[in-house]
Amino acid sequence: MSAAGSWWLPFEFERRWLVELLAVVVPSGADPRARFGAADVPARAFVDDLLVSAPLEFVLGLRGCVWVLMLCPVFCGARFTTFLGLTPAERLRVLSALRESPSYVVRELPLLLKMVACLAVCGLPEVQGSLDLEPRDATLPEWAQGTGAGGAP
């Protein structure tokens, strides 16, 4: 079942959250050999494409994941802020705590976001090029065309 034009699609603010979360799980400039992260690619265009192409359960799961992650400082850290309101160091602490959680669903959440981010980031020719991949297709994937971003800088 495709999600095109349906009630279960995330609101604008949820999409913005999602894009920002992707940049946390696949960050830019964290390693000299893998320098491109989600913030360097037109992640918003990718998210919009994914949401209308993915099966309904996946979209609902992704929305749930965004909400849990965003609100986890309130419920787990008793802090009245969202995940994105935390400092970078605090975010990393939260992410590793989630990864170590005894709850299967909780520890899978960051991995779900990472999977989405990797599909976006690692599909771009310039990112593949920066990692020396051969052969590769110089054409931008359809979702990245017309974004003006030209893939990665």
Binding site: V25, V26, A30, D31, P32, R33, A34, R91, L95, L111
Partner: peptide, 10 residues
């Protein structure tokens, strides 16, 4: 996940 994942990607 995060910088650790990027080091692995490297």
């Amino acid at each position: 996940v995060g910088p650790a994942g990027m080091r692995e990607l490297g």
